[in-house]
Design a protein around this nucleic acid. Structure first.
Lengths: 386, 386
DNA sequence: CCTACTTTGGTTTTCAAAATACCGAAGTAT
DNA sequence: ATACTTCGGTATTTTGAAAACCAAAGTAGG
């Protein structure tokens, strides 16, 4: 049933209810039942019994406010050459953040201690109880044996179980997700919050995709769903890819390939971010490359749109910094190739949180779990035991 | 919680529990609670308190058997030129079936009376209470405004609400699904029952796709998910399609196109089924066409496999009659184009139920709903009221 | 064969949780 | 000022499940 304390908290948290009476109307529960749950939530510090609100014709109701400062979650977005960490309150607000660069291809033995050390510092500064940790890794997460990674371009991380590294932060659950999936989750807190069917593109050095169908992240059998960068395309035939194979989409449309193409054209740059900056500044070569890259991506993306019939496609990752020109290319091939019904109400949007999106998504992943009715219930139960 | 009477019924129904004690162990419920629910289910005729089973060291337990004959569901698979109807028991067993041809492109005003008339006859012959009706239509089902269809190649059915047509069969819920989605559901009762991430191809006159992610059918924002036949492919550039556009995959790989190609080559046939029969008989032209068609389908299918990382791809529809040769073509391009991780454990299987698959899927769709814990609960509640 | 033990299932008792009923407080409408 | 509405707290009743108890039907072992 949808009448647990955690569910009431969700109604308040999402702004659907502000008083006990509204909870009563929304759940069909009796007043006593609502009061009991609200009291339990208030005792646990999750709800604040705020000031009185406007009267609606009788006694003024006592307002209920979600106490987003009751605890925190930690977020860690691990990248190939740069990782970010942050503390978030329970409403998904960022309290403090840090980031650091590391060697490209550095393994977990190097990166993880640096991550946990910084998280530890952030947590202590926050001075609030910790409820959970969300981590993203740029590779497939093998969901069968829990939490490890498996990626052709992230060899040092293959088969590593990340959860133990976070044990020192406290006995709280750790959730590990793919970087693109996590990006998709972040959008559910941003522009695309109201969209239940969503495709989120992460276009950076590589190309990845996060899929949300009916409000749930689709991760696939081995956690490898959302792969698009290493789809073979005819135009790339023969071009060697960093994954070891050849003919992949990334070899013509991935950020690393665009950088290479600029270098070959005698314009020495080192990162996609430089390319997008040039495009924003009006450089025609950069704009052309990005637009062409958007077109290339649009081809398999059109297949994805036909397949999944999403309400929106969100474009994130470094290339989204030049959204206008990149999205123009994407739109060009998507609208030419996808079916009329699939594009009829389709929106193509820029990502909401820019380069903070990974962290926001990690926090969203942790919050989804940690504030779920079941988790809230176990919190209350644990409190009641004492 | 997972402890309602309906959930206990599901445990028995799916063979996970055969005695009250097993239900106790599986649910954690007390004996009294289990007994109360089992009695209620037995009173309602949904459970049979069968013969005693083997002792496991003490008193012999009384066996619990799901009474699949307590009621029936009706299934109607509406096709473009032929429709099938059937009655199924509650275990998904077909009790009786009928089919009839109609003019290609006939509208609901012609087809629906014929369908309901035959369903009525089947229901009367079955002589058991009706719990629900499952219907499939070869087009997108608009899930926003309930139950109607919207398809470029099925113009006469656009915007039609099908549910009212079934009202005369009794005040039972009607569920309408897309033909490919329904095919996917049928596989969950067949070869692919254990696969939670699944792509089912319907390769017949047209090309469609049913997607199951984490055990749920993905229907997309407008119910148009699974579209693949009208994806634009370069090799088909300029070729006019029956959808009104041009360059669609169907124009080179759809059944209607293969038939046309045979006719143009001076081999007059009228339906894909003739083509598959020829291929099975060894005709080299037919085999070549089918293999080539499989290859063409494999290209966007590889994108789909990368995107969704399914455990299996099931091939159904008329072309599955020549599964060996067709699947050979599909495998050829899928394995060349999809990523290593996505194909590592991938299986490519023929559909389980052949041309009965549509009916089985309609029944599965209705049974899923009608035997869901919530529906069972409301059945028991209604009974208790009297 | 008889006794001790296990497993199953029914019945009674006890306990917990939620609905109902009742009540007072605080506002609005007349 | 009075009647009515809304909100929220408390006491009572009802419901439903767990626990405890009991009986039947089997196995295991001497």
């Amino acid at each position: 049933m949808s009448d647990s304390a955690g569910h009431l908290l969700e109604l308040v948290r999402t702004g659907r209810a502000h008083t006990r009476s509204e909870l009563r109307r929304l759940t069909g529960l009796s007043r006593t039942a609502v009061v009991a749950r609200v009291d339990a939530l208030a005792d646990a510090g999750l709800l604040l019994l705020g000031a009185e609100l406007e009267s609606t014709g009788g006694r003024r109701p006592g307002g209920l406010v979600f106490n987003k400062d009751a605890a925190v979650v930690l977020a860690a977005a691990i990248g190939r050459s740069r990782s970010q960490v942050a503390v978030f309150d329970l409403a998904g607000g960022e309290l403090a953040t840090a980031s650091f660069d590391h060697e490209l291809g550095a393994g977990p033995d190097v990166v993880m201690p640096a991550v946990t050390e910084r998280l530890q510092a952030l947590l202590e500064a926050a001075g609030r109880p910790l409820l959970g940790v969300g981590v993203s890794v740029p590779g497939a997460i093998d969901t069968t044996d829990g939490i490890s990674v498996d990626s052709p371009v992230l060899a040092a991380w293959a088969g590593v179980d990340l959860a133990p590294a976070f044990a020192e932060l406290g006995a709280v659950p750790t959730y590990v997700g793919n970087d693109a999936d996590v990006l998709a989750r972040s959008e559910r807190m941003g522009h695309a919050a109201q969209y239940d069917d969503l495709i989120v593109v992460k276009a950076s050095t590589g190309l990845g995709l996060g899929i949300i169908a009916e409000g749930r992240v689709v991760s696939g059998h081995l956690g490898a769903a959302g792969e698009i960068g290493h789809t073979k395309v005819d135009v790339a035939a023969g071009r060697p890819c960093r994954c070891g194979d050849s003919g992949c989409l990334e070899t013509v449309a991935g950020g690393w390939s665009l950088v290479n193409q600029m270098v070959e054209a005698g314009r020495p740059i080192h990162h996609v971010r430089e390319l997008t900056a040039m495009a924003v500044a009006g450089d025609p070569d950069a704009k052309h490359l990005l637009r062409e890259s958007g077109r290339r991506l649009g081809e398999p993306l059109a297949v994805a749109i036909n397949l999944l019939n999403p309400q929106a496609v969100v474009i994130g990752g470094d290339m989204a910094a030049a959204f206008d020109v990149y999205a123009a290319g994407v739109r060009e091939s998507v609208y030419a190739r996808a079916s009329a019904i699939a594009t009829r109400e389709l929106r193509i949007l820029p990502s909401t949180f820019g380069d903070r999106a990974g962290l926001v998504g990690c926090a969203a992943m942790a919050l989804d779990q940690v504030l779920s009715p079941a988790a809230v219930q176990s919190l209350l139960d644990k409190r009641a035991e004492r």
